[in-house]
Amino acid sequence: MADLILHHFLISPFSEKIRLVLGYKNLAWKSVIVPGVLPKPDVVALTGGYRRTPFLQIGADIYCDSALICEVLEQVRPTPALYPSSVNGMARTLAQWADTTLFWSVLAPPRDTVYMFADSPPETVNLFAADRDAMKGTMHRLRGSDAAAACKIYFDRLSEMLTDQPFLLGQKPCIADFSVYHPLWFSLQFTPVVADMLRTMPKLLAWMGRMQVLGHGTTQQIDSAQAVMAAARVEPLPIGEGPLADLRFQDEHGIPLGSRVTVTAESFGPEATEGELVAATRSHFTLRRHDPRAGTVHVHFPRIGYVLDKVA
């Protein structure tokens, strides 16, 4: 198998989620630090427009969204399992709630941007804020006070889950733990209101410590130009081979395979990726596209959280 290349940046919560999964599975991976804001020419060369962080590259196959990346890593190294059969449905449902409802509640209160960008000039802070406002577009935003009230309830419930066990759903971490952890990890550093709440939650803090020691696996730094070249040197895996081996076509849109389509996130990050629809299974979409620098690539998206449209 080609190298695992994670495109990420250090303070990205969803990047920390994937870094911890890589550590839990004791995987070696190559690290590409992407820009925090546009322009991202090397990102777009690989994804065709998608610019949320992180994404995973394996050769000329590009896997977008942390939920799909976790599915891929589970196939790359099945043990230890992210989706234990005894709690599979519950773990997936809790993870989806954490990646959406919990995430936006925890990140809604004011953040300490001075600390986040301690070594950066003021214009960098303003540029980052404007970039994230553009990514949010018209999505509903919780007021800080409403989000803080919700967080208190959520943290109490999560603490109760840790009363008699070290992880949220049992004796070992599962996908739910990684999805709950990453927004709390971010907020403990950069969101003072939420950090103050967490410091009154000893069970949650102890659980976070158990998650942190999982580490990040074995890492080698490369630059984005090397990653683009790595894609250009190979062809994407044939449909039905590799980590996403499901060949079954599931048509929910009346769009046949071979159509020119776009895939766009439902909310955060409005940039569309356009390409030829070469797979639409129960759980994911795959688009084939060509870039002058990266060559032919397959860009993969989960169904949940994304919108498929036919190009007129």
Rank of each mutant, 00 (worst) to 15 (best):
Y83M: 05
S86L: 12
Y83R: 09
L102G: 03
V106F: 00
G89A: 13
T93S: 15
W97P: 03
P110L: 02
N88S: 11
A98Q: 02
P109W: 02
S86W: 08
S86T: 14
A81P: 09
L102A: 10
T93L: 15
G89W: 06
T100R: 09
A108I: 02
T113L: 15
W104V: 11
S85V: 15
T93H: 15
D99F: 05
P80T: 04
A98L: 05
P84A: 08
W97G: 00
P80C: 02
L82T: 10
R111S: 14
W104K: 05
L82V: 10
T93G: 14
A98F: 06
L82D: 06
A91W: 07
S85Y: 12
A95T: 03
W97F: 14
S105Y: 00
T93V: 15
P109N: 06
V106I: 12
A81H: 08
W104H: 10
P84L: 07
L94E: 07
S85K: 14
R92T: 07
D99K: 04
S86R: 12
L102H: 05
P80R: 01
D112T: 01
S86P: 00
A81V: 11
L107F: 13
W97C: 02
L82W: 05
R92I: 06
P80S: 01
P80G: 03
R92H: 01
A95N: 01
T113G: 07
N88P: 00
T100V: 10
L94G: 03
G89P: 02
L94D: 03
A98S: 09
L102M: 13
A81M: 10
V87R: 07
Q96T: 15
L94Q: 11
A95C: 03
A95H: 00
M90G: 03
V87I: 09
S105E: 07
P84V: 06
A98P: 01
P84Q: 07
P109H: 04
S85G: 11
Q96N: 15
W104T: 10
Q96R: 15
S86E: 15
W104L: 07
R111M: 14
S86D: 13
S85P: 05
A108T: 04
T93Q: 15
T93P: 05
A91C: 13
W104A: 00
T93D: 14
T113D: 12
A95D: 02
T100H: 09
P84F: 04
A91I: 08
S86K: 13
A95P: 00
Q96V: 12
R92W: 02
L94I: 12
Y83I: 09
W97I: 08
N88Y: 10
D112M: 00
T113N: 10
P80E: 04
A95S: 11
L102W: 05
A91V: 12
D112Q: 00
